[in-house]
Design a protein around this nucleic acid. Structure first.
Lengths: 154, 154
DNA sequence: TCAATTGAGTACCATTTTAGTCCTGTATAA
DNA sequence: TTATACAGGACTAAAATGGTACTCAATTGA
C-alpha cells in the first residue's frame, strides 16, 4: 500500500511530541507513556532517530532526548529515512547498476523521476508542520497541473 | 524505504511492455520471456492487474492480455493500487476510526494530507509516461514552492 | 468433437522483513 | 556512590512477501 512501517509512524508521533515541548529533555519512558506505546519499542525508535542525527541524547539522571535542530529544519523525509532508509520507490533508484534487468525493464528512468518528486514532496513537509495541531493546508488538486510530466516541458 | 514491493515493480514493467504494443494480445509466457522474469510470477501479477480492471484477458488459443483502456488513462496509482492496495501512508489514512491512538497521536490529519498529495502525484503519472523510453521531465525543484504547506495558504 | 493453447484459481512453502523483548554495559547528575 | 537513563546487541515471534506447483476452465481451430 506504499505505507510507512509502523515504526516510522511511531517515530513521527514521538518526534511531534518532543517538538511540542522542545525545551525539555524527554525520557524514553515518559514519551512512551505520553503516546501510549510500549517502552522498548519507543526506545528503539528514539535510538534510531538519534543515530540519524535528528535527536541528541543525554544520559544519566535528568537526561533524555532533545531535538538536534529546530522542528522547522527536520523534514518528513528525514524521519522516514532515519527508520526505513532513503526514500526510493524501486530497488534501482537507490543504487544504480545493481539491477540486471535494466535492459528489459524500460521504466527505471521514469520511476526514478517519480521517486525524486515524492522525495521532494516529503522534504517540503517539516516536523513543525506535523506537530502543529492545526492541519496544514495542502492544495491537493495542484500537482497535476504544476508538476508537468510531459516530455514537452523541456 | 517507502519502496514499492517487487511485484509492483514487475507490474509496472509488464504493463509498460504491453503498452508498447497495445494492439496485440500478450500471452503470459511471452511477457515473462520479454522482461526476463519467472513465468508464474508474471502470471500472478497479470491476474492481479486484470482483476483490478487494468487489463482484459482472453482465454484459449491466440488469447492473452490487453490493456483495458488507453495507456494515457492508466496511472501509476492504478498500478500500485492493483498490487498493493490503495496508496496510503499510515494505517489511519485508509479507513478512519480504526486507530485507538488518535487521542495521543496528533499527526494523523497532517499525514493524511501528505498522503493525499502523494496519491495525487502518482495519479498524474500515466502508463504512457512510464512506457515512453524518452524520460519524462520532472521539474523536481518545483513542489517546494508550488505545493504550499503553510497554514497561511488558506 | 477433440486436442492444443492459455488464463483462472487455489493451496502451499520459503524467505525476508518487521516488530517487539530482554539483558548487559556505560555515562551522568545529584 | 547510587539512582537514573541511554547504548548496543542478541534474540524471538509474527507477518508479509515472493515464488512454485498443480488442477480446472475456456477458447480456438483442425
Amino acid at each position: 500500500m506504499l505505507k510507512l512501517s509502523r515504526l516510522t509512524d511511531y517515530a513521527a508521533v514521538v518526534m511531534a511530541q518532543i517538538a511540542r515541548h522542545s525545551q525539555a529533555s524527554h525520557a524514553a519512558a515518559d514519551l512512551a507513556e505520553a503516546v501510549q506505546l510500549p517502552h522498548p519499542t519507543v526506545s528503539k525508535t528514539l535510538k534510531m532517530l538519534a543515530r540519524a542525527g535528528l535527536l541528541v541524547s543525554q544520559r544519566g539522571a535528568q537526561g533524555g532526548y532533545r531535538l538536534a535542530r529546530p522542528a522547522s529544519q527536520i523534514t518528513a523525509a528525514d524521519i522516514i529515512a532515519a527508520i526505513e532508509g532513503p526514500v526510493a520507490m524501486t530497488e534501482c533508484s537507490q543504487a544504480e547498476g545493481d539491477c540486471e534487468l535494466v535492459a528489459t525493464c524500460g521504466v527505471a528512468d521514469n520511476w526514478q523521476r517519480v521517486s525524486l518528486a515524492m522525495r521532494t514532496l516529503l522534504e517540503s513537509v517539516t516536523l513543525a508542520h506535523l506537530a502543529d495541531t492545526a492541519p496544514i493546508k495542502l492544495p491537493v488538486q495542484l500537482p497535476i497541473q504544476t508538476i508537468s510530466l510531459s516530455a514537452a516541458t523541456a
